[in-house]
Nucleic acid binder design. Sequence first.
DNA 1: CTAAAACCTCAAGCAAGGTTGAGGTAAAGG
DNA 2: CCTTTACCTCAACCTTGCTTGAGGTTTTAG
Lengths: 152, 152
Amino acid sequence: MLEEANWTVGKVAKRCGVKVSTLHYYEELGLIRSWRNAGNQRRYKAEVLRRISVIKAAQKMGISLDSIKRAFSALPDNRTPTKNDWQQLASGWQQELDERIRYLEVLRDSLDSCIGCGCLSLTSCPIYNPDDIAGSQGGGAVILTRNAQSKS
Amino acid sequence: MLEEANWTVGKVAKRCGVKVSTLHYYEELGLIRSWRNAGNQRRYKAEVLRRISVIKAAQKMGISLDSIKRAFSALPDNRTPTKNDWQQLASGWQQELDERIRYLEVLRDSLDSCIGCGCLSLTSCPIYNPDDIAGSQGGGAVILTRNAQSKS
DNA sequence: CTAAAACCTCAAGCAAGGTTGAGGTAAAGG
DNA sequence: CCTTTACCTCAACCTTGCTTGAGGTTTTAG
């Protein structure tokens, strides 16, 4: 099993369904790491495969690379993350996902009644209301799409 | 009710919680329309308020401005959209939203079991699997976040 | 009537998340 | 050995969704 630490960038890319340039980019952002062989080419540990799949999963949840990076920083630096380490990450995201789902459900359920109604009321209509369900970001819990609509 | 068609850009912005520049931008994209007064300033019909709130709602669902524009193109051009017109739009989006929610639920439910497991199997693991739940885009129904991870 | 507030246009800039291309080096196959 | 394929770096570019600023005009309030 010396193969363990000998994944080339091309193989990782193929295996994960991403482009080589994406791996370069993730490395630049500090999301993944590699060592270099004698000829200065990247080599990866098998661990990177899981990292990348987790990144992709998190992105599908709507989590930014930046948040992912912050989440990854909770992983052990010295050893390969265990099943347990990953599951801890996951449970944090699960809560965000729950909130996100709940939010989308509210939106869905109010969509029909609201979109056609006359209730362009700033205060009560969940659709019209410019502000979201929760207001924090980066704080730890909520990541939902926010785009601070500030004063004009 | 001559006020009907006399909303200034500033008032619309304030009322909708967006910036004036956003309204300019939306107009440029063809999402909203205005007429000009004698001094070349934009004036809006009250209808624009609903359009903007619908745009914002759709964005919260994760729908792109481009898709919103396409959806809007189904609205009548000659008359002010009715409650019914809007509800038709809404029902289309509701289905997308349903799919999106279902997808996120799958993700959430598999997150815990999957993220820490050894199942880096390309075929069955819903997290690892590079492809999404559905494969169509632009076809009409599914719009969900897709980012065609192409071959490297 | 005048000053401030609101508007106008157009160009440039920002942030996220990558992709593309040029110019050059390494590794792998026959 | 030689050619192809894979890799390397760095800079520039792309898309989405806006924002900012410069330079100038219109409206509105007092």
